[in-house]
């Protein structure tokens, strides 16, 4: 079954627009030089809204840990069970993390500590989401 489809809002529209162009852009506070994801109205460190800009980041990360969803509550994903849900940290700033189903990795076999790289997956016509696959 396909994944649940994200609905961009005013704040997140630039992010999803970039994803649909196969780019990962995160908010960056010019004052703090701190990346921020998910997007917020203001910098969570200094509180400034003016200094936030979108910055493309390198799609490299690592698997910090993972779980296997065996009895989740999302109707759309139930046929996929069991499936991996990994926590991926961004190499550029490991305090930023993402979820990933690690496409191509069988359930229960996610390699904790492994390097991953950015990929994209179509969840609806014209709508991509960012995913991570184990680096070769």
């Amino acid at each position: 079954m396909p994944k649940v489809i994200p609905v961009p809002d005013e704040l997140s529209q630039p992010f999803w627009d970039a994803v649909n162009e196969r780019r990962l852009v995160l908010q960056n506070c010019a004052a703090c030089d701190k990346l921020q994801y998910p997007p917020q109205a203001a910098c969570q460190v200094c509180g400034s809204a003016d200094g936030l800009e979108w910055k493309e980041v390198e799609g490299k990360g690592h698997v910090a840990t993972y779980i296997v969803i065996e009895d989740g509550r999302l109707n759309r994903r139930m046929p996929d069970q069991p499936y991996n849900l990994a926590l991926v940290t961004l190499d550029q700033d490991p305090t930023v993390n993402f979820y990933s189903n690690l496409p191509g990795v069988p359930a229960y076999q996610a390699p904790v500590g492994a390097a991953v790289e950015l990929t994209f997956e179509e969840v609806a016509p014209g709508q991509l989401i960012h995913e991570w696959r184990v680096a070769q």
């Binding site: 994944k3 994200p6 998910p38 996929d80 499936y83 849900l85 979820y99 189903n101 969840v123």
Partner: peptide
Amino acid sequence: ARQWTVPWGNH
């Protein structure tokens, strides 16, 4: 807020 979690299965 669910757009950042639910597509990957976290409800």
